[in-house]
């Protein structure tokens, strides 16, 4: 009954992509960590690529299509997030950013997030700290201290180094789940009385 919903947002462009590979390993590690504590989990995987047109349309029209709305609601309703972006031009990809641009800026407040990125070389690994972390700080989400960056070599000679980082980050995300997520007040269910607006 105590099932946790983990939304995984991955913005790789190829099929399969290394971002998706990393996303799957992170999701698996979080699932193991939860089940080790006797907690069930449901993983909701979102490939941003599948919604690229809808995201553009949302930016242009100001509202999400019905199918994108469902995806956004999955993310905002999840107990925690795993986000993975490829590194493009020294930052997260434009497509990755678009996904978070169309969310309400309060939608992720208080939500634990595991930050992850992929790239061609280790030299980009600080993208997690100077690009992803400030973005999620702005969104008032709770990024866990350990981010996971995987370069090409992490899938071969350095694989032994990647595994402990994944386990460490997954453990931190599960620990963060005990935080109480503040629930935003719905202005439609709780409108500010007009006298208050007049007197403010």
């Amino acid at each position: 009954m105590n099932e946790k919903v983990i939304a995984v947002v991955t913005a790789g462009l190829t099929t399969p992509s290394s971002s998706r590979l990393l996303a799957d390993q992170l999701a698996e590690a979080v699932r193991d960590e939860l089940s080790g504590r006797g907690i069930g989990s449901r993983i909701e995987l979102i490939e941003v690529r599948d919604h690229a047109h809808d995201l553009t349309n949302n930016l242009l029209t100001g509202f999400p299509s019905a199918s994108l709305r469902e995806v956004l609601e999955t993310v905002t309703g999840a107990d925690a997030l795993i986000v993975v972006s490829p590194t493009f031009s020294a930052s997260y990809s434009g497509l990755f950013k678009m996904f978070f641009d169309v969310l309400d800026d309060q939608a992720l407040a208080g939500k634990p997030v595991l930050l992850a990125a992929t790239g061609g070389t280790e030299r980009h690994s600080l993208v997690l700290e100077f690009a992803l972390r400030p973005l999620f700080a702005y969104l008032k989400a709770l990024p866990v201290p350990t981010g996971v960056y995987a370069a090409s070599t992490d899938w071969g000679p350095n694989a032994a180094g990647l595994r402990p980082r994944i386990t460490q980050a997954a453990g931190e995300l599960v620990a963060a789940l005990h935080h109480e997520t503040p629930t935003a007040t719905d202005p439609f269910n709780n409108p500010t009385p007009f006298e208050d607006l007049l007197n403010s």
């Binding site: 202005p187 439609f188 409108p191 500010t192 009385p193 007009f194 607006l197």
Partner: peptide, 9 residues
Amino acid sequence: PEIAEQAAY
């Protein structure tokens, strides 16, 4: 919603 509230008031 504040404007819907204003109209209603």
